[in-house]
């Protein structure tokens, strides 16, 4: 029959999945949602972007005052103010993306329960929106760094590596948390506490060398610790001690790397496992 040949073939309905409805559609949705969210936050209101910038800058100002005038940790560290700013802006990216992602799937309940929406797009768009924000903030950070008088070095070219690693970890954690939240509703509060712990457990406010050796051995298991230390050496202060000079052995770095990889793998695995059932749990 002629109609038979023209008609599209019968294909299995894919069922809900992280990228249901085709990869291209998922990517287009990801882009549109991230861009519109970004525009909404920063161009929707008067002074929108200034407010977004004011938050890390305010935190930076307070911490700078406390740690150079009160505790004086920072006074001995070269280029402490720009290091602090650099660290705060990057840690804020991790913190903001993950805390927004935790509740994101539940917040988008409508599209999850009523449309064939690629589930992974929801946490990924949160990360992407926050990444746009980071890009804008980094421009400000760069101006500060140059104005402060930090000499550009070839290691600045390694910044994309640093940013990519941070992005991968942020994405993995975001996927993990957003997939678990529908079943564990206290995760938002718990994660709020945990990010605070991580903030102090990562050399953001202080350089790694001021921590005693015993504490350093524990801190370095947090994947963010070696990452932020490398970032400091690459961008702000090439003269800072290397991880080896700080008594951190190769096996510790391997352990941190393994934790990094397993968190990311766990995030992807859990999300893939939960995605088909998320609509039923909301």
């Amino acid at each position: 029959m002629s109609t038979e040949s023209q008609s599209p073939p019968l294909l299995d309905v894919p069922g809900p999945s992280p990228f249901g409805g085709g990869r291209r559609r998922a990517l287009e949705l990801l882009w549109i949602i991230a861009v519109t969210d970004f525009k909404k936050t920063y161009f929707g209101t008067a002074l929108g972007y200034l407010w977004a910038l004011a938050k890390p800058l305010l935190l930076f100002g307070v911490l700078l005052l406390v740690f150079t005038q009160v505790f004086r940790i920072g006074s001995d560290v070269p280029d402490y103010p720009v290091l602090l700013l650099f660290n705060i802006v990057l840690f804020a990216f991790f913190q903001e993306a993950t805390t927004t992602a935790v509740t994101s799937v539940v917040a988008q309940e409508g599209v999850v329960r009523k449309t064939q929406f690629p589930r992974a797009v929801i946490p990924l768009s949160v990360v992407l929106t926050t990444l746009f924000n980071l890009a804008l903030n980094l421009v400000v950070v760069l101006i500060f760094i140059l104005a402060w008088g930090v000499t550009p070095t070839w290691t600045w070219l390694l910044f994309p590596v640093f940013a990519a690693l941070l992005l991968v970890l942020t994405t993995g954690v975001s996927m993990l948390l957003s997939a678990l939240y529908p079943r564990l509703r206290d995760l938002a509060i718990i994660w709020g506490v945990l990010t605070t712990v991580l903030f102090y457990g990562t050399p953001v406010l202080y350089p790694l060398e001021v921590a005693p050796q015993g504490l350093r051995d524990v801190l370095v298991l947090n994947p963010l610790t070696p990452l932020f230390h490398l970032g400091r050496r690459w961008i702000i202060d090439p003269s800072a001690p290397t991880l080896g000079e700080l008594g951190i052995g190769a096996w510790q770095l391997v352990a941190a790397g393994a934790i990094f990889a397993s968190v990311c793998a766990l995030g992807v695995w859990v999300f893939r496992r939960e995605a088909p059932r998320i609509a039923e749990q909301l």
Binding site: V13, G15, R113, E280
Partner: peptide, 11 residues
């Protein structure tokens, strides 16, 4: 494709 079936087939 919002819910996944336990068994059976949809084409």
């Amino acid at each position: 494709s919002i819910y996944r079936a336990d068994a059976g087939r949809v084409r």
